[in-house]
Design a protein around this nucleic acid. Structure first.
Lengths: 224, 224
DNA sequence: TCCTAGTATATTGTATACAAGAAGGCAAGC
DNA sequence: GCTTGCCTTCTTGTATACAATATACTAGGA
C-alpha cells in the first residue's frame, strides 16, 4: 500500500522507469476504452508510437498481463483482455466478497483521517451524480473505492481489489453514469456503517453494492 | 484454470518460452526454500547460473513480482520477498475469507469427478500424515487445496488463491509436518461438507482451517 | 577518530540486432 | 472448385552491447 507516485517532485526523485511509464500509459488507454477488448498490442507498433524500444514495452505488457488487463498468448503476442460473461461473473463474485471483508475491516478500525477524505469524496460524488458528469463520476467512483480500500488497512486486500476493480469497471463502465444516483446513495450508507463501527452492516452493504451494480450492468448489456 | 503443462508431449507441443521456464525454476527454488527471503536475485548471476541471457531472467522476475514472491525495487534489483508478520496476517485474513467463499462454491456445484480426485488425495494425505513424510505432506497439501480451488469453479478465485497459498506456505512451511494430523482431519471434514452440499458448514470449516494453521505457525514462530 | 567527497565497481535500464516461430497468400495438383 | 504444400511476411523470443544509476570503498581533512 505504498503512497503511490502521487507525490511527484518529492526529494527522492523516484524516477519511474520507462517500463513503468509505458505500463501506466497502456493501462490508462485500456481503462478509458481508447483500446478496446480484443485489440492486438503489437510490440513493434507500440514501440514506434511511444518512442521507446521493445524491451520496456514487453515488460509493461507482462505487468499488465499479471493484472489481468492484457492477455498474452505465447509466440502470438498480446491483446487487450476480453472479459467473457463467465469471467465477469467470477470477478463479481470475488469482488463482492472482498469488498465485504474490506468494509468490515474499515468499520473495525475506522481511521479518522481517511474517513474525513471519504466524506469529501462522497460530497463531490453526490454533486457529480446530480449533474451527471460522466468523467467526474468515473474518477470519483474510483477514488471512493480506493480510499475505502485504504481504510480497510489490509495491504494484500488493497492490491487485489485494485485489479478486480479495474477489470469490473471495464465491464460496467457504460453503466456508471446511468446508475450514479443509486451508486452514491449506497456509498453513503456504507460509509455511515463504517463510521458507526457496525461491521456486519458495512460488510453486507458493500457486498450488496457490488452485486447490484453488476446486475444493473448485465441487465443493460442484455438489452443492447 | 487451464489444465497446465502437465500434459507434456501432447499434439500441440506448446513450447514454453525460456522466460516461462526460468520463472518456473525460480518459483520452485523459492517455494522449496532453496532461495531464502531477502536473498538478492542479481540478473547477471542468474543469467550465468541458468545459461540464458538477462532478458528472460528479467521477464521471469517481473512475473514473480506480480505473484508477490519477489520484490523489485526500481534500479536496485530484485530479491526474494520477505514477508513481514503484518503482511502475513493480511495474507491470512484474505486467504481465510477466499477459502471460505471457494468451499461454499464447491459445495454448491460439487463436481463428481473432482470430488473423486479429492478423495484420493485425502487418502494419500492421511497416510503421509501418519508416516510424517515432510516432502509428501507439502506436495499433497498443495494438491488438496489446488483441487479444492478447482472444485469451486471460479477462475478468478482460482488464480488469486494460488498466489495467496504460495505466499502463506512460504511462512507456514516449517509447521506443515508438525500439524499434519490435524490438517488432514480438517481437510476430511471440509470435503465431507462439500459432498453434503452444506455450503455454510464447508465455508466455515475452510475459513477456520486457514486461521488455525496460521495460529499454529505464529505460535511456533513466537517460540523460536 | 569521524565525517565528507570523490572515485571505482557492481548492477540495472534500454537499445539494437538477429534468430525462430506463426499467419496468410499463392500456385500446383487432384 | 477445392485442397495441399510452399513461401513470404509479420511478429515474437533471445542475445549482445552500451548507458545510466546505485553502492562500496578510499583518501583527505577537521
Amino acid at each position: 500500500m505504498k503512497p503511490g507516485n502521487g507525490s511527484r517532485g518529492a526529494l527522492g526523485r523516484e524516477h519511474p522507469s520507462l517500463s513503468q511509464r509505458v505500463a501506466e500509459e497502456l493501462r490508462r488507454s485500456i481503462l478509458t476504452n481508447r483500446r478496446r477488448p480484443g485489440d492486438r498490442l503489437i510490440e513493434d507498433r507500440l514501440s514506434q508510437e511511444l518512442g521507446v524500444s521493445r524491451i520496456p514495452i514487453r515488460e509493461a505488457l507482462r505487468v499488465l498481463a499479471g493484472e489481468g488487463l492484457v492477455a498474452v498468448q505465447p509466440r502470438r503476442g498480446a491483446s487487450v483482455a476480453d472479459i467473457s460473461p463467465e469471467v465477469a461473473r467470477d470477478l463479481v463474485e470475488v469482488r463482492a466478497t472482498l469488498e465485504g471483508l474490506n468494509a468490515r475491516l474499515a468499520a473495525r478500525h475506522h481511521d479518522p483521517a481517511i474517513v474525513q477524505e471519504l466524506k469529501r469524496v462522497l460530497k463531490d460524488g453526490n454533486r457529480a451524480a446530480r449533474s451527471k458528469n460522466a468523467d467526474d463520476l468515473v474518477r470519483l467512483n474510483g477514488e471512493f473505492h480506493d480510499k475505502l480500500a485504504e481504510a480497510g488497512g489490509n495491504s494484500i486486500l488493497f492490491d487485489i481489489m485494485r485489479t478486480l476493480r479495474e477489470r469490473t469497471n471495464l465491464v460496467f463502465a457504460a453503466n456508471t453514469a446511468r446508475r450514479a444516483e443509486q451508486d452514491w446513495d449506497e456509498h453513503s450508507k456504507i460509509l455511515a456503517a463504517v463510521i458507526d463501527g457496525d461491521e456486519d452492516l458495512a460488510s453486507m452493504l458493500a457486498t450488496r453494492h457490488v452485486h447490484r451494480a453488476a446486475e444493473a450492468a448485465f441487465g443493460a448489456a442484455a438489452k443492447t
